[in-house]
Simulated scan of single mutants.
Amino acid sequence: MGKEVTSLRERQRLMTRRTIQQHAMRLFLERGYDETTVNDVARAAGVSSMTVYRHFPTKEDLVLSDEYDPLIVQRIAARPADEPLMRRIGATLVEEVGKVVSDDESFEHGVVAPAGKELLLARLRLVLATPALRARRWDSQYATQKAIVEALRGDPPDPELEFRLWVAAGACLAAVSAALLRWAEENGRPDLPQLMTQALTIVSERQR
């Protein structure tokens, strides 16, 4: 019974997050990011400003925060340990982002998918148009890179492996980021997983 109550509460919490974020994105796109306040978002979502800040500590989080990093890191770590690092990380990123743009709402391992294709596209458009979000996005990417390294480096860490992990994770995330921005600039028309795979192939090519 206790687990069921916890699961229900977690689902309600995540659904509230999704509702707040969807209203925030709509307002940001309609009015502009700088012109929209957290109070505006709270009123649109039918919650208090305190509730918004509980789920999203900063205004930037309303655009950039999601629940995917822990799942992505978990799935990278679950792949075969002898798989080449670039493939281990890159293939997982392609698979997980592919699920996001499928527009299928899911509830898996306690996580409601916070963004389908349209929400991801809106997020990227805002990032491209807003300097503060671009700066914060790089911070977020670094946090993802660090989480991947910490999940794979072992205990105690091997310094040589840890360096290779930083390089591989950074290269994969940079390639995926370039693909996402290209996809957004082309209004979501290209096949995103295919574009990501192409970007990952470029960074994996041996220089002659």
Rank of each mutant, 00 (worst) to 15 (best):
E10Y: 06
R13P: 00
R13N: 12
M15E: 15
R17V: 07
I20Y: 05
Q22N: 11
F28K: 04
Y33S: 03
Y33Q: 03
Y33E: 02
R43V: 10
A44C: 06
A45N: 05
V47P: 03
H55L: 09
H55Q: 11
H55Y: 12
P57A: 03
P57F: 02
T58Y: 06
L64A: 03
S65R: 15
D66M: 04
P70I: 02
P70Q: 02
Q74V: 01
Q74I: 00
I76M: 09
A77I: 05
A77V: 03
A78C: 11
P84E: 04
M86Q: 12
R87Q: 12
R88A: 03
R88C: 06
A91D: 15
T92D: 04
E95S: 12
E96L: 12
V97S: 09
V97Q: 07
V101S: 03
V101N: 02
V101I: 10
D104H: 13
F107V: 09
F107H: 14
A113N: 12
P114A: 04
G116R: 04
E118I: 03
E118G: 08
A122Y: 00
A122C: 06
R123H: 02
L128D: 10
L128S: 11
T130M: 03
L133M: 02
L133G: 02
R136P: 07
R136Q: 12
D139M: 13
Q141I: 11
A143V: 08
E150C: 10
A151E: 07
R153L: 08
P156H: 07
D158V: 07
P159F: 02
V167N: 12
A168M: 02
A171T: 11
A171Y: 10
L173Y: 01
A175Y: 05
S177C: 10
A179P: 06
L181F: 13
N187F: 09
R189K: 15
P193L: 01
P193Q: 00
L195T: 01
L195F: 00
L200D: 01
I202D: 10
S204R: 09
E205R: 13
Q207G: 12
R208P: 15
